[in-house]
Computed example of a mutant assay.
Amino acid sequence: MIDIEDLVVRRGGTDVLRGLSARIGEGEAVRVAGANGSGKSTLLSVLAGVTAPDAGRVTVAGRAPTDPAVRALRGHVQEPPPLYDHLTAGEQTAFTAAVWGVDARRLRERAEAFGLGDRLDVLVADLSLGQRKKLGYVCATAHDPRLVLLDEPFNGLDADAERAVRDDLARWRSEGRTLVVVSHADSSVADLVDTTLTVGADA
C-alpha cells in the first residue's frame, strides 16, 4: 500500500525527516512514533499529498500521493481538523457529502452518533475543541476510505466519542483497511496497531 524510500523533508534548512525508508502493507495498522518535532505529522502530510518531499520517493497504492486516484481511497484525520468556521456543523457535513458524493443524510446521522446532534445548527467557529475534533473525524472519513491517516485521533475526545472512533478503527482493521496512526502514547493505540514506525531526523 505505502512505499517510502530515502524520504527527506526539510523545514527552514533543517531536516525534519532524513533518509526514512519503510513499507506499509495493505491492511496493516501502524503507529508512527517519535519525539516532539521528529516529523510524525510531517510524514502524514507527505502521505496525504499536502507536503512534497525534498528528496526520496513515496508511493501510495503504486502512485504519487498527489495523484487524484489516491485521494479517493485516502482519509486524513488532521490535528487540528480543517473545517470552515463560517459554516454550521450541519452545513459542513452537507458540503463534505457533496464533495465526496455520499449520502448527506447518512453523514448527518453519523455526526449525530458522535454526539453532535444538538450542535448541527451551531457555527463551526463556536464549537468546542472536542466538538470540532469529532466533526473533523466524521468529515475526513465520510467516503469510507481504504487508507486512513490519523494524527492524534483521541486528543480532545470525550469517552463516548473515543469509543466510537475505536469501534471504527477495529471495524476497518477487520475489513483489511490500512491505518497509519500518529500517537504520543503507545498505550492509547496498542490494541489497534500491528507495529510501530519510529521517525526522526536520523530514522
Rank of each mutant, 00 (worst) to 15 (best):
E28I: 04
R31M: 02
G25N: 09
L43D: 04
A72Q: 15
S38F: 12
E26D: 14
V32W: 15
E26I: 12
P53D: 07
A61V: 09
Q78S: 15
R23K: 01
P80L: 12
E26G: 11
A55K: 09
A64N: 13
P81E: 02
V16D: 01
V70H: 10
R18E: 06
G62E: 08
R63C: 11
L17A: 03
S41P: 00
V46Q: 04
P80I: 12
A33G: 07
A64H: 14
V16C: 13
S21G: 08
A48W: 06
I24D: 01
G27A: 04
R18A: 14
G62V: 03
L20V: 15
L44S: 06
G56P: 12
R18D: 06
L20G: 06
R18I: 08
V46S: 08
E26K: 07
L47Q: 03
A64E: 14
G39Y: 08
A52L: 10
P65G: 01
A22P: 02
Y84V: 14
P81G: 09
P81K: 03
E79G: 12
V16Y: 13
P53H: 05
A64S: 06
V58E: 04
A33D: 10
P68R: 04
P53V: 04
P81S: 01
G75P: 01
S41Q: 10
A33S: 06
A61I: 02
A35E: 14
A52W: 15
V30F: 04
H76R: 06
R23A: 09
V46G: 12
G39T: 13
E26P: 11
R63H: 12
G49T: 09
V30D: 05
V60R: 03
T66G: 10
E28K: 02
K40S: 03
A35D: 14
P80V: 03
R57W: 13
A61L: 09
G27F: 03
